[in-house]
Simulated assay, not measured.
Amino acid sequence: MKKKILSVLLATTMIFGLVACGSGKDGSGDTSAKGGDDGLIKVGIINNDPNESGYRTANDKDMKNTFTKENGYDASFAYSLKNDEQITAAQKFIQDGVDYLLLSAADTSGWDSVLKDAQDAGTQVILFDRTIDADESLYVASIVSDMNKEGETACEWLKNQNLAEYNIIHIQGVMGSAAQKGRSGALTDTADKEGWNIVTEQTAEWNAEKAQQIVQSVIDSGEKFNVIYAENDDMAKGAVAALDKANISHGVGKDVVVMGFDCNQWALTELLNQNWNYDGQCNPFQASYIADVIEKLEKGEKISEKTIIMDEKGFDATTIKQADVDQYGI
């Protein structure tokens, strides 16, 4: 770990609406100068809004439970769904002299400059949850889901349903995010190859209410559809709310096939009750993997795998069991 040096105190609140909070029991924000707690590894964690989805809530909780003072860390957190705000937070963490910058990027592009600054400052960068478009030399490890594979697995499942026709409402997540690009790209490629009809393709930015509005708009237009491909569970939930309001049946053997991602426990229960048809897993528990990487780096060991892919699967309403809900639900 690089030499501890004192730096000026940062402002008590992050600019541009970023939320920063320390790892103390009171959850209060603390971006104080490096070296305040002898022997602690100083980390700056940049994440998406924990209220974005059940997945993100679980992901943030996992980070906070792992990177504590009791476990040897002095952790500060910053949250935003906007790339420019995340980059501002990263610059502040680097200025503050963090040992490690942990990053779940809102967008895959635009990170080269700030990561070069981190490298020059001796701050080691570890990506989690999402990949970025940057040279691998700019970060020491990437603990991520294979978003492309998640989408491909879902589309292969949908293809195997052998529907008489495919008229799909495609509800996208935040545009430019790794999850959106991977899950959208798979559907676009498969639809082109199979001749599926994409009725509409709009972003609901992971939000249930926006997803409900999108589906309601299609219902009001009178255009026929029989598949909803929502890129997270919350948006699938919003889509189903629109179907229920219009008395349109959904789930196994019903009028509309409902697909989601993330495997929230309540979403898997919808599969178990056959109200939904498919849910793709996205594993939110990366903190222990990151801690293992940091431990190795602190011992001077080399990281054998630059990219660590989380093990994930998809669930079908006709085969899911309660044990799956209990084990994989977040």
Rank of each mutant, 00 (worst) to 15 (best):
Y73P: 02
Q213A: 15
S23V: 04
I294F: 06
A106C: 04
N160T: 14
W111V: 02
D279C: 15
W276R: 05
L187M: 07
L138S: 02
W206F: 06
W157V: 02
A204I: 01
N65V: 01
E152A: 12
K69N: 01
V140L: 08
S80A: 05
T203A: 08
N167K: 15
A246F: 14
G300I: 02
S7T: 13
M63F: 13
D326G: 02
N283I: 01
Y139Q: 10
E295L: 06
S137V: 12
T108D: 08
K2E: 03
D117W: 03
E165H: 08
I309G: 08
I169Y: 06
I126A: 09
G72P: 06
K193C: 05
F261K: 01
I308R: 04
M1Q: 10
A89S: 06
K92L: 14
T108L: 10
R56Q: 00
D316G: 10
M235G: 01
G39A: 07
I308C: 08
I5Q: 08
L40N: 00
T57K: 07
K254A: 04
V174S: 01
E152S: 11
L6W: 13
E201V: 11
G253M: 10
V257G: 04
L10K: 08
E270D: 14
Q212N: 10
I294V: 12
K61S: 06
G22K: 03
Q322L: 02
L10N: 09
F67L: 05
I5E: 10
V19T: 10
F315I: 00
I169W: 06
N232D: 06
D255R: 14
N273Q: 14
Q281W: 10
I308N: 05
A267L: 01
K245L: 13
G54P: 00
L115D: 01
I171S: 02
